[in-house]
Design a binder for these strands. Structure first.
Lengths: 81, 81, 81, 81
DNA sequence: ACGTTTGCGCTTTAGC
DNA sequence: GCTAAAGCGCAAACGT
């Protein structure tokens, strides 16, 4: 088999792997929607839930960001991190 | 246990389920990036790969429609297609 | 002149207006680069400057976001904003 | 006035100049969005307009190169171009 | 000069 | 169908 064909085969495998992963990703997005729907049918306010989840995610991110900022400052001051 | 506590507990479970699913979704996004990186290190052009994946996902008719519209506009502007 | 030609002319004008604005936008981006370069040649640390600018922008955005969050809470509680 | 104060003042000026330029840049971005909105309300397809602007900005050679690469990959995968 | 990494802007998606 | 948010892609910027 020629080198070109080997390459084509390899390219095809890469693309199929990505397409599979994307499919799974879409599946998870649907699952998430499903849980929200279930919560709603149990009387919970979806908008408020989203706010809570967003805030919890922000807390984590902010914490990570603070660390990064600190490192930048330390570097700027010529200190070891 | 009071009704309020039951509700709070249930709400917590819903939110944790969603956060877990979102975490998995992020994991898959990372996996996808990893495959692209691997393909790149094997000499493939990532941008072109993305184009191909996009085209394959697109419905054949939608694609033809979009191209027709583009040609119409290009002609209207006196540009080469 | 036919209606098609009028449309083509109008389309052309829209596109040219956008292209002009984008050109100006690129010019401003260059100006910004220039100021950073000037500051650097005066001995300032560019990375630290970027951090400061980012923080100042974040402060403003966070303030706006806090307001938005408050509104969400108020709505969730059935209160008037 | 001490040297440190001069430096601080100078740094402040640099930062303010950059913030002003960034503000203007954001203003232009808004203007562009406005023109797209106007075009849309006149019945034009925004997505296609974006494609045209992109193509016009692209160098003719680069464009031909990319298309050739896409065709190569598509053929390798046994897909129709 | 090149490759990696970060930040910005666009595109797409989800909800109203 | 439109508006708002999130995720993704690209391009510039930094370090090697």
């Amino acid at each position: 088999m020629s080198r070109a064909n080997v390459s084509a085969e390899q390219l095809k495998l890469f693309i199929e792997r990505i397409e599979t992963l994307e499919e799974e990703k879409r599946g998870l997005a649907d699952d998430i929607k499903g849980v929200f729907a279930e919560a709603k049918s149990n009387g919970y306010d979806v908008k408020t839930m989203r706010t809570i989840i967003k805030l919890r995610r922000m807390d984590r991110n902010d914490r990570a960001e603070q660390e990064a900022l600190l490192e930048t400052y330390m570097s700027a001051l010529g200190l070891e991190v």
